[in-house]
Design a protein around this nucleic acid. Structure first.
Lengths: 347, 347
DNA sequence: GCATTCGTCGAAACCGGTTTCGAACCGTTT
DNA sequence: AAACGGTTCGAAACCGGTTTCGACGAATGC
């Protein structure tokens, strides 16, 4: 029962060495461009390796190198909405192809998370990025005595001794409020998400602080209720419009909530951005480019976050002291038609 | 410059053996529950291993085993919308923890794809799942002479000699039409996506066939234009409503298109589902549970697809003949309020 | 001409496990 | 007492690379 007409065995370094008439050690040096091999033998070995289709086994190399060139990503992000950009960023941190990422989705199950963690450790990954986000933040620490560098990304660890990197939500709220103020809005309301999330509170805090500095005030609904669903977004928008007359701008804690606000405004025949400006958080392409009008949003820089997280890991591996605690990364406002009209055609 | 107070070196099998006063071979057998070790030595070795925190190196094991317990997933799915459920399914195929997945996102770049492929082969992954979808389908083959089992998932390979698994789009269209027919709709229109996608055409074909069998006919817009954006969805819906009076149901080729249809219907003060029923494709949680009303949709069974793809790989690895070609997997309709009213509260 | 240096190369050890095979030891049978 | 079967264990080879170190020949210096 063999797999038909496939080479029974991979080509090994010993095969190359034999075919080239040199020893394993010489072949190894020749291929890795090490000092100490003659130019002619080097080219000969190279040619033979090419002809034989030699693909060096990373597994064997890892055994001596001590490094695997692999980082693990442990997540509960079922949607993959946060984790994929972070993964892309981590790949970029080292040149592509230098680093592989093992992605483990614990799906909110603690047992599965432990099992994944064990497997990752046995595979001798060089570092671990923990991407929180699906549940309440911050996420519980995996513990301090792990034998590798661990970085918590997106949602910080509950343990301040851990290394965490996250988007600066407060700055996001601040920039959002400043943007709306700069286009002349003076009656700005905030639509929060699930109030147990730090992100929702921080974004409000940032906006509030920015407006206070400018001489304004942030209009908020009571924060006791709230969730990340559009249903809640519609409810909150309607309530704010009813109770606070004269609102001319909304900051929503997510793009989906902003979309809900747009829907309610449309139902009420209020024009966006003329009567009311709307902006969201996440800059999630699938949402922001599909709404009417397209949605101004705070981009959390997730790819940059992934790149930064990976760079923290490499720093720790090369012996640098990586300061524990939460490292907040900048965000930016992406302006679209829902705050500043710029389009030619509307539908 | 060492990382402070972390064990300089992982505990190795030799350490355990020495501490337990046995040889490496005995320790290995004791830990792996192999026949040929005394009961007392076995428990002693186990206890020592536990005390020392021994974690066997998967890298070393892979070297002799020839298997890595790793599959690669190569994708262009920037959103992670398809690939995450498929990844979860693949993990399920073998018990969790038995299998690790290296996820590589080529981001639509052919060079990056080649580089990722090379890295994956060097890492001696046991099999490869190629998840297409972001671009035009089917996707080009990676070639026939790869030294491992390859399965194309979601978007099939262009080469019929490759093994492909995909959701049965035609069946989806068929089931959708039957569902709408069963609730009394007789004037059913189809909103297609990008017409260069097989998926969009197949779904229409299935619906057309089902209606033909029932004595009906599928109303379609000219298929020359079209895309997966909501803008297109709104345009197509409006055009169909204008040109074809009496439409009482829409099948949209994606949930986002369906959402666009819902928006247009709401603008026109048409009630859903009373006046017009709407359903989509993908059963994408973030959409279907957030629309007004919640959206009936065809679930493509992506997780099952991932599980199936992985099982094909294991079958090939264990020597079974895996038939090449396209293997279509069943889909199912998930009924919500946009076709059959079931809710208590509306907003 | 001999000692020294340099560049090239190969034997062998090593990484951390698994597996094979033979030695040692036990108790039982004849 | 010798032969025998069965169990327990360890030495050594092995997987596929990398690295160290010593051997060797050629070129250089005196």
């Amino acid at each position: 029962m063999e797999i038909a007409d496939r080479p029974r065995r991979e080509v090994t370094l010993a095969d190359v060495a034999r075919a080239a008439g040199v020893s394993k050690s010489t072949a190894s040096k020749a291929l890795r461009d090490k000092y100490g091999v003659g130019a002619d033998t080097r080219t000969r070995v190279r040619e033979v390796a090419e002809k034989l289709g030699f693909r060096p086994s990373a597994v064997a190399r890892q055994l001596t190198a001590g490094r695997t060139g692999t980082v693990g990503i442990l997540t509960n992000d079922l949607e993959g909405r946060f984790v994929i950009p972070i993964l892309a960023g981590a790949e970029d941190a080292l040149g592509a192809g230098e680093l592989s990422v093992i992605l483990c989705d614990a799906r909110g199950d603690a047992i599965r998370e432990r099992r994944h963690l064990r497997t990752l450790l046995e595979r001798r990954i060089d570092g671990l990025i923990v991407v929180g986000g699906a549940r309440t933040e911050p996420r519980p620490s995996l513990g301090r005595d792990l034998p590798l560098p661990v970085v918590y990304a997106y949602a910080p660890s509950a343990d301040p001794e851990d290394v965490s990197v996250a988007a600066d939500d407060r700055l996001g709220g601040l920039l959002a409020a400043e943007h709306l103020w700069s286009i002349g809005r003076r009656s700005i309301a905030y639509i929060g998400g699930d109030p147990t999330y730090d992100a929702s509170r921080e974004r409000a805090e940032g906006a509030r602080a920015a407006l206070a500095a400018l001489g304004g005030e942030l209009i908020t609904a009571p924060m006791s209720a709230g969730s990340w669903t559009e249903r809640w977004g519609r409810l909150a928008t309607a309530r704010l419009l009813d109770e606070q007359p004269g609102i001319d701008a909304f900051i929503a804690a997510s793009d989906m909530l902003a979309r809900a606000a747009l829907d309610v405004l449309r139902d009420r025949r209020l024009r966006v951005p003329d009567d009311v400006a709307v902006m969201g958080f996440d800059n999630w392409p699938i949402i922001v480019t599909n709404t009417r009008p397209e949605l101004t949003s705070v981009d959390l820089g997730l790819q940059e976050l992934g790149r930064y997280a990976a760079s923290r890991i490499f720093a720790a591996l090369s012996g640098e002291e990586v300061a524990p605690g939460l490292d907040l990364r900048p965000v930016r406002v992406v302006v679209r038609d829902s705050t500043v009209r710029n389009d030619v055609a509307a539908d």
